[in-house]
């Protein structure tokens, strides 16, 4: 028998339910896979003394029900995508682990969750690193084909993808729809790469054209899609997968528009 039953008041159960919903939404907003969202929300509720915690996930919301001493408490939260942020996911999970080790009580968990402020790397640094990443992709592509190193291709890829990443971050900062954002940024990337093709600056224009848009491949959603479906969250997997394909199609639209505008059809 749990002797705690006497102490826990009704308000406490409400507060714990809201905390479970908050952790779930925070994880869902920042790109955690469904199995992790459900297990962290459940383990937090159990650690804070609930008898059972049930979590149902939807593409744009989360429902949490806690059961305690025969009493139910249910709450629903809306989920708005905030972009992938592994720092938030890590901090939320550590808060849950501390609660499980009884190092944090109800008030402590609430304070810890409120204190999490999402880490963001400086925008210029991300753009430079992403530019380098796409240049590395260009080299890897040449390496797999047994091609020779070509400095011009890397430089063009670096500039095109770096500028595109800067545009993408700027548009995201202005709260544009991700689909609009990706299409516009893909247009910029392909337009810059197309200049190298038109003016014959590079030896392998095809590599530059394809490598400079690789920053738009939604790798995280694609992997989450499959892992959600493998772990039984079919509907979450489908909605993530549809979003990932839509993002790819939006980029494709931007690429085609740029290739039409500059009449540079080197890709196919």
């Amino acid at each position: 028998m749990n002797t705690d039953h006497g102490h826990r008041r009704e308000e406490d159960q409400g507060a714990i339910t809201r905390l479970c919903a908050q952790t779930g939404v925070m994880l869902l907003q920042h790109g955690a896979e469904s199995a992790l969202v459900e297990s962290v929300a459940r383990r937090l509720g159990l650690a804070l003394g609930m008898d059972s915690v049930e979590v149902a996930l939807m593409a744009n919301g989360i429902t949490v029900t806690t059961l305690y001493g025969g009493r139910d408490c249910t709450t629903v939260r809306r989920n708005v995508d905030r972009g992938i942020n592994m720092h938030v996911v890590t901090e939320v999970q550590r808060t849950m682990l501390l609660a499980e080790e009884k190092k944090l009580d109800l008030a402590g968990v609430a304070r810890c969750l409120d204190e999490i402020s999402p880490l963001r790397y400086p925008r210029w640094l991300v753009s430079v690193m992403v530019g380098l990443s796409c240049a590395a992709f260009a080299r890897l592509g040449l390496l797999a084909r047994g091609g020779e190193a070509d400095l011009g291709t890397f430089a063009l890829t670096f500039v095109a993808s770096g500028v595109a990443m800067q545009v993408r971050q700027w548009l995201a900062h202005l709260h544009f729809n991700p689909l609009v954002n990706f299409a516009a940024a893909a247009f910029v990337a392909t337009s810059i790469a197309a200049q190298g093709v038109i003016h014959h600056w590079v030896d392998s224009p095809k590599i530059a054209m394809s490598a400079c848009v690789l920053l738009f491949v939604p790798g995280f959603p694609l992997i989450n899609t499959v892992s959600d479906m493998v772990k039984g969250y079919i509907n979450m997997g489908i909605s993530r997968g549809v979003m990932a394909v839509l993002l790819l199609l939006a980029c494709c639209g931007g690429i085609v528009l740029a290739m039409t505008a500059w009449n540079a059809w080197t890709w196919l």
Binding site: I84, N85, V126, V130, A136, R139
Partner: peptide, 14 residues
Amino acid sequence: LAAVPAVGFAMIFN
């Protein structure tokens, strides 16, 4: 070369 995109995209994922 593969280490570069891993870090670059890790920074996008914060």
